[in-house]
Design a protein around this nucleic acid. Structure first.
Lengths: 372, 372
DNA sequence: TCACGCATAGAAAGCGCTTTCCATCGCGAG
DNA sequence: CTCGCGATGGAAAGCGCTTTCTATGCGTGA
């Protein structure tokens, strides 16, 4: 019923092999023959059977992207960037189809999707999203990644730390070590996983230092969910800044919450309950900062006159927030694009397998000296 | 090298056929045998070869979602909703893999992706995004969709009008006619395309009526790109409201632009150039409204005291905008979820193939009586 | 003039799975 | 005691494509 290679071959008066060769242009075919085949393809409106090709060629033109949630601008932008890099708008052969998978931040779904992608024999996988530091999950993840690599799939971690081989060192550096955690055996361990990471620690540190420089001493911190590397890094940066200026890190001034607005709102209330005299709050990200601002306003506090608020990520809406958010800009689009290029092998992999992208402090209207 | 069905069969001491049957549970297998097979699968860490299954079964567990841009919250939310409905969190068999394709609003890429999805033998496709009214593209699209349907793929249009069979009637109704545009032949035309649409016309109308009720008469309109059905519907609703109250529709008060912030910004400047005394502006959507507000502020105009501004869609950030945007809420999540369910056949299709979702006027702080 | 090599094209063997027949076994009915 | 049928499991034929391996035709150096 559907048109197959054989139909095209018959129509063009050649063999199936020739048609395949014309379509994949991986073998010399005479000009005239090629034209004849292409004409037949057009006339018959032939559309190749992807699964069949994938089966025979042992690789599909599917590429996976794992994100926590496409509805979250952070991941939306990342996914969009990765994808536009994947699509055939660039050179190389045929179109790739990007599979965007929402894990919802669940480690189990992360593993499930990785298996599914493996099952589809995806050509590459870009893994974004928060990295849990739970050892069990980390191990399971490393194992899955190793299997994908062994199957020839290029895995790229984006916006998360490289797969550590041993235990996290917890030192001051941002990258924990070279990538490539092949768990067992000595068989063929395909392409080593690559990483595109953000300097969360440095960004957080410069943000808090900005606050300190303005004269703030009682700085609240709404951190992300506990157990995530990103959360830990940002918190470490914050603390490093405090320590560098001899400011005591009062426990009650740090509250953990999810990376969403509601958490920011709740956390700010909690922070205020602990210490009414905070003069500044650094939030886990811009979305959280919005919630913090809302809660502050409810308390009759003005931003930044009474309390300064800082975000993180520099998402598009941060410019339009009132006051416009002081934040740390993460090069999301660049990260996505590079991850995409690395995944497609369109960019040479760095020697250590890690691309570290720097962040930039963006000072806008939500921070000001205290008591101004 | 990789573990195949045969390996599992050997290990379990059964035939490949039996293993396949256990895995797909579509044939009676004795309890004991099943256990043996499952144990072998677990021990060998067998992961089925997706392409091979798809080839043999003539259908894959891939499901496509076409959006303009995942980085845009509107589409991000839609995609997220569709996808969570697709994933196995619900009943039915195995996981589906959602392929999110960014068309970037380009009709060509829309067609390309449709072909790619067809090529992958996707089980279902959800098509969102602006519908161009260009007849050539509409015809090409209908043809592609017909081919997908013929191949047994369920196509669901979401947030866009049904595929019209004939010429748009342009009457007052919102849905133009039943779906199912099978172009040619009399062969097997699989499942008819379904549609989940928003009442853009009604929403826009109630929004403008709200403004009129407040006392506004000089209302500017920043419409979306010309040639899109959504744009036309929203504009028609706006004009219907004006007409209903005997307000002249001054040409210079309507400006077209893209659905982004920059367009809103530019359009507002243009609008002000045409008529400095506007007292209100309805924007193509919330993002555009933000741009309009920014431009207004630059002109020294306050919102809503000097000029009221209204958005459309009710995206998450609209609540936090200052002033919070008066807008029309579109049930994005519900739309995505229903589209997803229809695509998966988890919800009975309506008789006429169209689900029309109503919108809701949300009055917040960005609109007020003129000269207040 | 003849053999040799290059450029092209065809034949055919799978890729790993699903699924349609069949074969077998055990058991109750006639 | 034999026949028939339900419940299971196996054998084998593809699904549509890629890719060796092989065959053919022709130009060319000896």
């Amino acid at each position: 019923m559907t048109v197959t290679l054989a139909d095209v071959a018959a129509r063009a008066g050649v063999s199936a092999a020739t048609v395949s060769r014309v379509l994949n242009s991986n073998y010399p075919v005479a000009e005239a023959t090629r034209d004849r085949v292409l004409r037949a393809v057009a006339e018959l409106e032939y559309v190749a059977n992807g699964p069949a090709s994938a089966l025979a060629a042992a690789t599909s033109d599917l590429v996976g992207i794992l994100v926590n949630d496409v509805a979250d601008p952070f991941f939306g932008i990342l996914a969009s960037a990765v994808q536009s890099e994947m699509s055939g708008d660039s050179t190389s052969g045929g179109e790739k189809l990007a599979v965007v998978c929402n894990t919802g931040g669940s480690p189990e779904r992360e593993l499930t999707y990785l298996t599914l992608l493996h099952r589809q024999r995806a050509g590459a996988v870009v893994l974004t999203g928060g990295a849990t530091e739970d050892p069990a999950h980390t191990a399971a993840l490393a194992a899955r990644v190793a299997r994908l690599s062994a199957a020839g799939t290029q895995v790229v971690l984006c916006g998360r730390p490289p797969l550590a081989v041993g235990v996290p060192t917890g030192d001051g550096g941002s990258a924990e070590g070279p990538a490539g955690a092949s768990s067992a055996s000595g068989a063929d361990t395909g392409p080593a996983p690559l990483t595109v990471a953000f300097d969360n620690r440095g960004g957080a540190r410069s943000l808090t230092e900005h606050l300190v420089a303005l004269g703030h001493r009682r700085i609240g911190c709404v951190a992300g969910p506990e157990g995530l590397t990103t959360t830990r890094h940002r918190l470490e940066g914050h603390r490093a800044a405090l320590a560098a200026h001899g400011i005591e890190d009062v426990p009650g001034r740090t509250v953990h919450g999810a990376y969403d607005r509601a958490s920011g709102y709740a956390a700010a209330h909690e922070l205020l309950r602990q210490d009414e005299d905070l003069t500044a709050v650094v939030a886990a990200n811009d979305t959280v900062a919005l919630g913090v601002c809302a809660a502050l306003r409810e308390h009759g506090l003005r931003v930044p006159e009474d309390v300064s608020v800082a975000g993180f990520d520099d998402l598009p809406f941060s410019t339009d927030a009132v006051p416009a958010l002081t934040t740390v800009r993460l090069p999301l689009t660049e990260a996505g694009a590079r991850a995409g290029r690395l995944a497609m092998g369109r960019e040479p992999a760095p020697a250590d397998g890690v691309v570290l992208l720097s962040s930039e402090l963006v000072i806008r209207k939500s921070t000001a000296p205290p008591y101004s």
